[in-house]
Design a protein around this nucleic acid. Sequence first.
RNA 1: CGGGAUGUGGCGCAGCCCGGUAGCGCACUCGCCUGGGGGGCGAGGGGUCGCAGGUUCAAAUCCUGUCAUCCCGACCA
Length: 490
Amino acid sequence: MADAITSREQDYSQWYLDIIKFAKLADYSPVRGCMIIRPNGYALWENMQQALDKMFKETGHQNAYFPIFIPQSFLAKEADHVDGFAKECAVVTHSRLKVDPELGLIVDPDSKLEENLIVRPTSETIIWDTYSRWIQSWRDLPVLMNQWANVVRWEMRTRLFLRTMEFLWQEGHTAHSTEEEAVAETLTILDVYATFAEDFMAVPVIKGIKTASERFAGAVETYCIEAMMQDGKALQAGTSHFLGQNFAKAFDCKFQNKNNELEYVWATSWGVSTRLIGALIMVHSDDKGLVLPPKLAPTQVALVPIYRKDEERESVLEEAYAIKKELTDAGIRIIVDDRDGFRPGWKFNEYEVQGVPVRLALGPRDVANSTIEVARRDNGQKETVARADLADSILNTLEAIQNGLFERALKTREDMTASVDSYEDFKSVLDSKGGFVRMHWDGTGETENQIKAETKATIRCIPLEGYEEEGVDPVSGKPSKGRVYFARSY
RNA sequence: CGGGAUGUGGCGCAGCCCGGUAGCGCACUCGCCUGGGGGGCGAGGGGUCGCAGGUUCAAAUCCUGUCAUCCCGACCA
């Protein structure tokens, strides 16, 4: 079974799909482009939600829930927004089915809706319609709201977690009295995302600004975090948008300021999705299976008891449950795999494929010696630890794995980041190893498009740090204010 | 939506060219032996061959259509 995982070298895309399948993260659905998130995958999402939700609340946000259906007319109100999303909306036009004697079950033509409903591709419109009723005075601001929801975008080509027609995400929507405050909010969230990616997912990210062509439909400025996958392709891991007054104007959302004047509200929106699970897989996992960072792993430690005779079984399991209690009390998510009928070696492989960070093996010899075998998923190292030190030892190991995964990913990204000063070098780096390529850019859409057309690489972002450096765009020959990050991307 | 590939027990596949009524490995069930990195032996259960038409005495196999999935392109978190 395990040897059925395609190696990364052989076929990276297939490897990615194999990991999802063997680690039981998701399954295909009867509906094209949709996915079934299995318990292993959903538990991962729940842990992500929990960590992010805490950070949102710590930065003053509250959760709410808006409907999945949006009146079609709402979507038309913000011009750029329409352009961006009109092509990929699921539309509800009827409200019931009926059984036709000849045709069987059909849409009842008499149930046509007065106004079509759009299945939300994102919720700006319905939220700004609401905010326009909620907000009157500067005293009503800011509104700092988030929702956990599903959205639907009718995609042509889908991939599990990375791009599905329906996906789970959170979308924050905030309203502010000043531009400065809204921009600050956008950046606060960008930092939350970056912190989450690096501290919890152990995925290093570049914080930056999107170019006009990559900007969210309806935004004034889109900030993003960009991550590098093992195959040299970049992945946008999260976006935070400064929306200016675009939606406030479209939905007539004004507030009375302290000078008794009416002003349009300033807005932001921001989101991360189940796509992050795809990033997690592609950054850390190896040819043996999934590798999970301890902070997000649904199970951090799996204990496999080993025994032959009944009396051994009894003493080993007794010890195993004692260890479970001890580690659980220490705040560690541990399971004891006491299933009979699965042999130890089989279980070892099972937890390896599923990415459990630490595996313990406890046999009669260990019970006799008051020891236990500790194996790390990230580097395969095994050691025998004294039973008395176990909790501390595991806590240290989990931390070491968390840090080690980040360091390894960071090194990989650094190895996959190049700075070039000629278009020839740019192309040869892209074709040989991919990765991020830092190159001067003249700031025009023309050059950006030309590069995209010729190399398939896009500007992933204009980095917030380490950008400014006078230079020349090697493609156009025009002056450049700094190096931007190019990459081929998912 | 264009190009390519593939649909056969739960999973992975063979059979298809050369029609004759379905097989292998894994998984599953039961029993015994086993148990520190995917065990062994024995006995079992499970498939109208993606779907719909057509050709034929006879279709997994040939023909037409259709649907789905994967890969590659254009669009996107």
